[in-house]
Amino acid sequence: MQLIAEDLAIDRGARRVIDGLSFAVKAGEALLLTGANGAGKTTLLRTLAGYIRPFRGRVRLEGGDDELTVAEQAHVVGHTNAVKLSLSVAENAAFWNAYLDSGEDAELRVGTALRHFGLEDLSEFPAAYLSAGQKRRLGLARLLVARRPVWLLDEPTASLDTASSERLVAAVNDHTNSGGLAVIATHLPLALERARTLNLAAQKVPA
């Protein structure tokens, strides 16, 4: 399986943010997107996720389910956590499991996800009580409550401490080791096992 971007040109407003970008991410691999603010990291991720229609070129998932769009086979974690404050931690995770996943072992999955991100002791608390870092971890726990081959993460370590970042790195490594692939926009180096780096600033072609 591989995620392929072919000759992408993406506009935001009247500005061409990305022009003539092609790459492929194979199963078992993580691609780190780097570049200054405004280099187009978020725009590229949202294009891969299918929210933004590229002006030219296309994104496809080779070896995926042809019936589904790339977005339907991907976890997208953006700047927001998609956490409901008046639901408990467990209810938040259980909702995303019920909504995104059709698998059988719902409770097991939710339990594993919360445990991995160190939230099992907090599971009965409303999410409103969580700190910013804990909310981020709950947002990231969505990656584990449903199985999806493609992970698209935008600055996932924002507001995470070192220990939590390591938990995230472990989750991404598990994911790639079991045949998943990931594209991660980050400005901090992440200690991933099999990662390549794509610097978007260097891709810029002066007009």
Binding site: A49, G50, Y51, A71, E72, A74, H75, V76, G78, H79, T80, N81, A82, V83, K84, W96, Y99, L100, S102, G139, R142
Partner: peptide, 14 residues
């Protein structure tokens, strides 16, 4: 929309 839930709902099976 504000908390990003809508983005994730859009990637769901529905």
């Amino acid at each position: 929309h504000e908390d990003g839930t809508l983005d994730v709902l859009a990637t769901g099976p529905l």
